[in-house]
Amino acid sequence: MAMPESLYYFIQQLINGLTVGSTYALIAIGYTMVYGIIGMINFAHGEIYMIGSYIAFIVIAALAMFGIESVPLIIVAAFAISMMVTSAYGYSIERVAYRPLRGGNRLIPLISAIGMSIFLQNLVRIAQGSRDIAMPTMISGGVDIGPHEGFHATLSYMQMIIFVVTLITMFGLTLFISRSRMGRACRACAEDLKMTNLLGINTNGIIALTFVIGAALAAIAGVLLGMYYGVINPYIGFMAGLKAFTAAVLGGIGSIPGAVLGGLLLGVTEAITAGYFSSEYKDVVAFALLILILLFRPSGILGRPEVEKV
């Protein structure tokens, strides 16, 4: 093979970026769905992701204590329980902190959401302690891409799992939104909430459903990233949430393919910056990219331009 080393280096950074980007995308979908329907930024979404990680760790530790060692079983159980619990959290948060505030000034639910985010973060801190909790690697190994001598790119099995799960989830969600009855109701709500309500659709139920789906996706990201990095603490939700939100806006908030595209773009940009420039500046470049794109395409890459209503 005559491919130069620098190409493999680029491939490696691309793989790293896409891995991180996939999980940004999963969290970003939650933001985008909620925004698309009720036009509200759910700032507590990052904390849901964090809670998902914690639940996954608890499940994994519990199964290990019962002596269950089958990795696929553990992973499936972690996904299932974590998604169920975070869905319940998503539903409760919407019910308690957002539903009473709907319809007023849009700043009000935003403040409430920030408060909710602080509350959840500290709840977990008090309950679980602020220390890093670590878990041994469950899935190790991977495949090498490129020559055995010299530099080659590696793609770990864990990274493959992240890609595959992310892709399956996105296709599933797209199918759900475009084909199912409830998905159609969701789209109707996004189009015009009041009108949909008048047409006899239970909009409260649809909004709750949106929060539940978003929370479940955040849990998927939480489980995946928890297993990938192996370390969690109560503070991981904030930055992940911020990045995912950036990804959602980058892709055009309200658009699900946009959130995915934005997430991947953000992840790759960060990896390339860290790989060719310096890891210190990857966050600066990520936010600068956002600002640049918004300046030239004020509603994001795939977003629909806003229509001014009189």
Binding site: S112, G115, M116, I126
Partner: peptide
């Protein structure tokens, strides 16, 4: 924790 809770309750 109380600070976060207060922000939510005040808004409601």
């Amino acid at each position: 924790l109380l600070f976060g809770l207060m922000m939510v309750l005040m808004m409601i």
